[in-house]
C-alpha cells in the first residue's frame, strides 16, 4: 500500500483531543458501539485501515514513508459527557464469503464507507457496497461516507461535490479525510458515533438488544481506565506536547 507523500503530520490535533479525553468520569457504565469500515479491500487500499489506526491509536503518527493500518481498533470517546467505546472492525478480505459480510453488517450499528478520492473506480464501487450494506444491515445503521486521501489534491479524480451529492442522494453523512495528515479523521469517527448516539437517545436503537452492535459495556476499574493501550490509545498521544 504505497500511499501518498503527504505533508508533515498535524500533531496539534492530538494534543487537543488528548486533553479532551476523560480518564474516568461520571458513571462507570459506558456504551459500546460496534462499527465497520468498508470499502474496496486492502490490497489496492483506499486507506481505511490507516484511517482506523489513525483514529484508534494516536501514538502512531502519520509519517510519509510509513503506511500502517489495523483491522480492529477500539477507542473511548465522549459524547455529551457520556463515555462511549467505539469498536471498529475492518471487513477487508472477507468479501468472498457471503455469510461473513452479511453477519458483519447485521452486527454493527454504524459503518464507514471509504473511497479514495484519487481513484474513481473506488467511488464507482460505492453503489455496490451501499446496496450490500443496506440489504443486510439493520435499516437504522448509520453510514458515513468518507473520501479519503484528501491531501492528494493534485491527483484528485473525484470531486468533493460528487461525494456530497452521492451522500445526499443516499442519506449518508459525508466527509473528506486524510489518514496522512489526520485531517477530519477524528471528526469522521466522532460524527458517526454522535449520530448513533443520537439514535440511541431517540430510542431507535435498543441498547438492550446487542444484535444491533450496541451494548452497555462492563464496568472498568479506574486503575485499568488509566492505562488502556488500544481502547484508550488517545491518552498516550501526548508525547508531542
Amino acid at each position: 500500500m504505497l500511499e501518498q507523500l503527504g505533508q508533515d503530520p498535524n500533531v496539534a490535533v492530538y494534543c487537543t483531543s488528548a486533553l479532551h479525553h476523560p480518564q474516568s468520569t461520571g458513571s462507570r457504565h459506558f456504551i459500546v458501539i460496534d462499527a465497520l469500515s468498508i470499502g474496496t479491500s486492502n490490497v489496492l487500499g483506499v486507506g481505511k485501515s490507516c484511517l482506523l489506526l489513525q483514529f484508534t491509536d494516536k501514538r502512531f503518527q502519520p509519517v510519509h514513508d510509513l503506511t500502517i493500518g489495523v483491522e480492529f481498533g477500539a477507542r473511548m470517546i465522549t459524547i455529551d459527557g457520556k463515555q462511549i467505546k467505539l469498536q471498529i472492525w475492518d471487513t477487508a478480505g472477507q468479501e468472498s464469503f457471503r455469510s461473513i459480510t452479511r453477519s458483519y453488517y447485521r452486527g454493527a450499528a454504524g459503518a464507514l464507507l471509504v473511497y479514495d478520492i484519487t481513484r474513481r473506480d473506488t467511488f464507482n464501487h460505492l453503489t455496490t457496497w451501499l446496496e450490500d450494506a443496506r440489504q443486510h444491515s439493520n435499516s437504522n445503521m448509520v453510514i458515513m461516507l468518507i473520501g479519503n486521501k484528501s491531501d492528494l489534491e493534485a491527483r484528485r479524480e473525484v470531486k468533493k461535490e460528487e461525494g456530497e451529492a452521492f451522500a445526499r442522494e443516499h442519506g449518508l453523512i459525508f466527509m473528506e479525510t486524510s489518514a496522512k495528515t489526520a485531517a477530519n479523521v477524528e471528526e469522521a469517527f466522532i460524527n458517526t458515533a454522535k449520530e448513533i448516539y443520537q439514535k440511541i437517545q431517540d430510542g431507535v436503537f435498543d441498547i438492550n438488544n446487542e444484535a444491533n452492535g450496541i451494548k452497555i459495556g462492563p464496568q472498568h476499574s479506574p486503575a485499568n481506565q488509566n492505562m488502556p493501550s488500544g481502547g484508550g490509545g488517545g491518552n498516550q498521544g501526548g508525547n508531542c506536547c
Binding site: 460496534d34 469498536q87 472492525w89 472477507q94 464469503f97 455469510s99 461473513i100 453477519s103 458483519y104 447485521r106 452486527g107 446487542e210 444484535a211 452492535g213
Partner: peptide
C-alpha cells in the same frame, strides 16, 4: 456471546 467474536470465528 459476542456476535463480532462469533463472526470472526466463522471467518
Amino acid at each position: 456471546s459476542e456476535a463480532m467474536v462469533r463472526i470472526a470465528v466463522r471467518t
